[in-house]
Amino acid sequence: MLITRRHFAGLTLAAAATALGAAPSFAASDIRKGTLSGRQGYTVSGTVKIKKKDGKTVVHLADDYLFDPSKNPPDIKIGFGNGEQYAKGSKIHDKLTVKKGAASFEVPAGINTDDFQELYIYCEQFSVILGVAPLK
């Protein structure tokens, strides 16, 4: 294996950061994942990923995302919480219109997704959780 000066310098900096108690950051982003499952008689499925990069956090619904096409609640949102309890102020957009396939949403700067163990798809008007994805 050939190690260039650039690689050696990077490894040296990472070792120094680790020795000082800082975790080195080799990856371009941190990722948390979960799988959606429906609630309240709704069929909601698919993979969600939360990525952090360059000071921004983004929620990604994967290609396998599906929201029950036969139902049309009036006020669908994405937000966060714990223990199947939605946390007020964790809403990340005004209205979810995507019912199938990939989509991405930037999380507002004031929301720290690390504070939450679950991502929700919910109806804000009636305070009903329609789908939950436990995050790991």
Results as ranks from 00 to 15, higher is better:
42 Y>D: 09
40 Q>G: 12
11 L>H: 02
125 Q>C: 11
14 A>S: 15
31 I>E: 15
7 H>G: 10
59 V>G: 06
68 D>H: 13
17 A>F: 09
98 V>W: 09
111 I>Q: 08
39 R>L: 13
20 L>F: 11
115 D>L: 15
6 R>P: 00
52 K>S: 14
132 V>L: 06
93 H>N: 03
35 T>S: 10
53 K>W: 01
101 G>H: 11
82 N>T: 10
32 R>W: 09
34 G>K: 01
95 K>N: 06
98 V>T: 13
79 G>S: 06
15 A>M: 13
1 M>I: 13
81 G>F: 08
35 T>N: 11
31 I>A: 14
80 F>E: 00
5 R>N: 03
18 T>Q: 07
90 S>P: 07
77 K>W: 06
24 P>Y: 09
7 H>D: 11
107 V>C: 11
26 F>I: 02
112 N>L: 11
109 A>N: 10
72 N>M: 09
101 G>D: 12
57 T>K: 00
61 L>D: 05
120 Y>C: 03
57 T>S: 01
72 N>Y: 04
49 K>H: 09
14 A>T: 00
136 K>M: 05
16 A>N: 08
105 F>P: 03
22 A>R: 04
55 G>A: 13
21 G>T: 03
106 E>L: 06
81 G>M: 11
104 S>Q: 14
88 K>P: 15
11 L>N: 06
82 N>G: 04
111 I>W: 09
44 V>G: 00
114 D>T: 04
54 D>C: 01
125 Q>W: 14
81 G>N: 08
114 D>K: 03
115 D>P: 01
34 G>P: 11
1 M>T: 14
126 F>H: 14
7 H>Q: 15
84 E>W: 13
20 L>G: 09
21 G>V: 05
24 P>F: 07
32 R>T: 13
48 V>Y: 00
12 T>P: 05
54 D>L: 02
66 L>I: 00
126 F>G: 04
130 L>H: 00
8 F>Q: 03
98 V>H: 06
25 S>V: 08
83 G>Q: 08
22 A>H: 14
129 I>V: 12
133 A>I: 04
101 G>A: 05
111 I>A: 13
5 R>M: 07
46 G>Y: 11
63 D>A: 15
91 K>L: 01
50 I>S: 01
65 Y>M: 02
80 F>Y: 07
73 P>A: 02
39 R>E: 15
52 K>Q: 15
117 Q>I: 04
37 S>H: 12
37 S>C: 07
112 N>H: 10
128 V>G: 08
72 N>T: 07
23 A>Y: 02
125 Q>N: 14
109 A>L: 08
49 K>Q: 05
54 D>K: 03
81 G>K: 10
108 P>M: 10
2 L>T: 13
57 T>I: 04
114 D>A: 15
26 F>C: 10
118 E>L: 08
102 A>M: 06
70 S>T: 08
49 K>A: 14
132 V>W: 02
121 I>F: 10
50 I>T: 03
54 D>Q: 04
65 Y>E: 12
112 N>P: 02
21 G>M: 07
103 A>S: 12
